[in-house]
Simulated assay, not measured.
Amino acid sequence: MRKWKRVDTAEGPRFRSELESHEAALLHNMIDSVLEMLDGRQAQSPADELEAITGIRTGPSAPPADDTLARLLPDFYRADATGATEMPDGIGPADFNGALRSVHEPAIIDAKREAATRMRDTCPRDGGRLELTEADAQAWIAAVNDIRLALGTILGVGAGGPDLLPVDHPLAGHLDVYHWLTALQEYLVLGLMGKRA
């Protein structure tokens, strides 16, 4: 992939780049995997008879069992470094997280699905030139971030960044993809900020 080029037009900024066919296929594959995970999680939402009346959807109250999905949909509240919690009497962190999750997770999944779908729709399936609007670019940044989070979980990427892997390691190619996604996202962010990469 080439670096992003920002072009200011009368309709607003446009962000142009070009993808090789294998890069486009890889992006589509990863987007579809993230969408599949989110769809599976959404299918676990409890049936709510009041949804038709109130318009309020509820999601599962328990966190995802899958580590990758749990990274995409983390808990809302965590204890501080000492393990101390400041919760109302009788309410523990799990109860608090469960209540927040059941109320907010459906909207979070919707936003992630919308970004991923918009990225998939604006990414040429066979590669080639692409031009994004500012809204498209924002969706790409969000969707690439989710792809990186999912891939980073599989690779065991910590807060300090990804570890180096030996060339013959079975996940070495995945780490290369992680680095490529990081560069793709960084250059697009810089383009949105109007800075040169």
Rank of each mutant, 00 (worst) to 15 (best):
E20R: 14
I154Y: 01
I91P: 07
G156D: 08
A84L: 10
R2Q: 14
A115C: 06
R101C: 05
M37K: 12
K3A: 15
P60T: 15
M87E: 12
D146S: 10
A142L: 07
D110A: 15
R2D: 14
R14T: 11
G194L: 02
D126E: 14
A135P: 00
G194C: 03
G59N: 07
A24F: 07
D168L: 03
T68A: 13
G160P: 00
D67G: 04
G158W: 04
G92L: 08
A183M: 09
R129S: 12
E18Q: 11
H22I: 02
P162V: 04
K5G: 02
R120Q: 14
Q44H: 08
D67Q: 09
R196F: 06
T133H: 07
A150V: 06
G12T: 03
F96D: 02
A150T: 03
L100N: 10
A94N: 13
T133P: 02
I147E: 00
M87I: 04
H174N: 14
M119C: 09
C123R: 05
E186P: 00
R125V: 13
A107Q: 15
Y77E: 06
I91R: 11
G191T: 01
G98T: 12
M1Q: 10
P93F: 03
Q185Y: 00
L26D: 08
L171Y: 10
E131N: 13
A99E: 12
I31F: 08
P93L: 15
E105K: 09
P60K: 14
L164C: 00
A135Y: 00
G173H: 07
N29D: 14
G161V: 04
T153F: 05
H104W: 06
L192E: 01
H174Y: 11
A142E: 06
L165P: 01
D136Q: 02
P88D: 10
P13C: 01
L171I: 00
P46W: 02
I108S: 09
S61M: 11
A150S: 15
K5I: 12
T82W: 11
V189T: 05
V167S: 13
V177P: 02
M37L: 15
R129K: 11
G98V: 12
D39K: 09
R2I: 05
